[in-house]
Amino acid sequence: MRKRRPTIIDVAERAGVSKSTAARALAGAESILDETRERVLAAAKAVGYERNHLAVGMRSGRSGMLGLVIPDITNPFWADVARGALDRAAEADVSLLVFSSDWDPAKEESHLRALRRARVDGAIVNPVSDALDDLDKFGLPFVLIGSSAERFADVSSVGSDITQAVELGLDHLVSKGHHAPTLIVGPKSRLARTRFLNAVQRHSIKRDVDPAQLIVEDGEYTLEGGRLAMLRLLDRPRLGHICVFAANDMMAIGAMMAVRERGLRCPEDVSILGFDGIPSGAFTFPGLTTIAKPGRDIGARAVESLFDEIEGRPEHGRVYMPCRLIDRASLADLSREPRKLAG
């Protein structure tokens, strides 16, 4: 025989209070004495009571659920963003529905429709398309993450400080004697590519280096994209050591695969710097030196910003999260050697 589900009446009886007092204590009402609240919470735990969030939502107009749409759940960076958002939502006793658009605008739109049907209280979105013209289509409070968000100055958004990150990476390369790195970047359709290259250009000009001399190879933001881009670079005529700064760690690890495929060594023949800080970079051989984005912090901060949006306290601006260097073994130190152009 199925056991009866505990009710608020069971909690009230065990705590020795009225049903209304028990309900207000569990709802966090400020008028309840701390001693009474603790007694009610202990009673709820003892009888195994769980609040009916659907009923609470019907009374409050809130569902207690948020949505998160990221472009690639298989990419460890985006998985880390999702984990940060999940943890922060759980702290607030809120559920988070996570969707992966797989870089497909049609899937993204389908996920947004699903979130509206689920009556989530708000959504965090990394738009697949950089041409996100109709922000009102969300029809609910939202916060943007990722590169596309910077185009919308009047919308709350959270993301990495790409300029700071690129300069951090280039300064480290210069300290190792790599003054003109080759760049592996994303597709021309992505705003992230433009931001990355703009930061490189500004840094180069400050150091009196002509940005036009830097070799740039496009690729997809995947292992295979980085591998193919690196193979194309290795097919070019070159002189001396090659240094590569990849726009994400997946591409950097793919580049390492291509180096081995051609019978070369990293970092003896080719130095590689990544960007993201995904955990797998610690287990490559050699370990991948990278600029780590604060993925988990971005997810948590985006949830906090979304809470403000829901409560009518919008930030309406960009929150830039600083990145940090993780120095491993994928960069050769040429600083004591005569300066050569990297290709």
Results as ranks from 00 to 15, higher is better:
residue 26 L to D: 09
residue 34 D to Y: 01
residue 64 G to Y: 01
residue 95 S to F: 05
residue 160 S to R: 04
residue 151 R to V: 01
residue 159 G to R: 13
residue 43 A to L: 08
residue 30 E to A: 14
residue 129 S to Q: 12
residue 118 A to W: 02
residue 130 D to Q: 12
residue 91 E to K: 14
residue 25 A to D: 02
residue 59 R to K: 13
residue 108 E to V: 10
residue 138 F to E: 00
residue 101 S to Q: 12
residue 44 A to F: 03
residue 120 V to A: 11
residue 37 R to K: 13
residue 81 V to K: 06
residue 126 N to S: 15
residue 150 E to H: 10
residue 148 S to R: 09
residue 134 D to A: 00
residue 117 R to I: 11
residue 48 G to P: 07
residue 160 S to M: 12
residue 98 V to G: 08
residue 106 A to T: 15
residue 63 S to Y: 02
residue 32 I to T: 09
residue 91 E to A: 11
residue 154 D to H: 15
residue 78 W to S: 09
residue 117 R to A: 14
residue 127 P to A: 11
residue 40 V to K: 07
residue 69 V to K: 02
residue 131 A to G: 03
residue 43 A to E: 01
residue 110 S to Y: 13
residue 147 S to V: 02
residue 117 R to K: 14
residue 102 D to H: 12
residue 133 D to S: 11
residue 37 R to N: 04
residue 128 V to W: 03
residue 112 L to E: 03
residue 157 S to P: 02
residue 124 I to M: 11
residue 97 L to N: 01
residue 34 D to M: 05
residue 139 G to F: 07
residue 104 D to T: 09
residue 38 E to D: 12
residue 24 R to F: 06
residue 155 V to A: 02
residue 161 D to L: 09
residue 121 D to P: 08
residue 133 D to M: 01
residue 131 A to P: 00
residue 154 D to W: 07
residue 61 G to V: 10
residue 136 D to G: 07
residue 114 A to Y: 05
residue 109 E to S: 13
residue 75 N to M: 00
residue 34 D to N: 06
residue 153 A to T: 15
residue 144 L to C: 10
residue 50 E to P: 00
residue 67 G to M: 04
residue 71 P to C: 10
residue 129 S to R: 12
residue 90 A to C: 06
residue 58 M to K: 02
residue 130 D to V: 10
residue 28 G to Q: 07
residue 103 W to K: 13
residue 91 E to F: 09
residue 146 G to E: 12
residue 150 E to A: 14
residue 113 R to A: 01
residue 113 R to Y: 00
residue 147 S to W: 02
residue 159 G to E: 08
residue 46 A to K: 06
residue 125 V to T: 08
residue 67 G to E: 05
residue 116 R to V: 06
residue 134 D to H: 00
residue 27 A to W: 02
residue 71 P to L: 13
residue 150 E to R: 15
residue 40 V to Y: 12
residue 76 P to L: 12
residue 108 E to K: 10
residue 34 D to P: 02
residue 147 S to H: 14
residue 68 L to F: 04
residue 34 D to H: 06
residue 144 L to F: 13
residue 136 D to V: 00
residue 102 D to W: 03
residue 73 I to T: 05
residue 132 L to K: 00
residue 37 R to D: 05
residue 45 K to E: 15
residue 98 V to R: 10
residue 149 A to M: 11
residue 145 I to H: 05
residue 31 S to F: 02
residue 24 R to W: 05
residue 127 P to M: 09
residue 86 L to C: 07
residue 90 A to T: 14
residue 85 A to D: 10
residue 87 D to K: 14
residue 24 R to E: 04
residue 79 A to W: 11
residue 86 L to A: 13
residue 77 F to E: 08
residue 102 D to M: 08
residue 67 G to R: 05
residue 50 E to I: 03
residue 152 F to I: 02
residue 107 K to A: 15
residue 79 A to C: 08
residue 30 E to N: 06
residue 39 R to M: 05
residue 87 D to W: 09
residue 123 A to T: 14
residue 80 D to V: 01
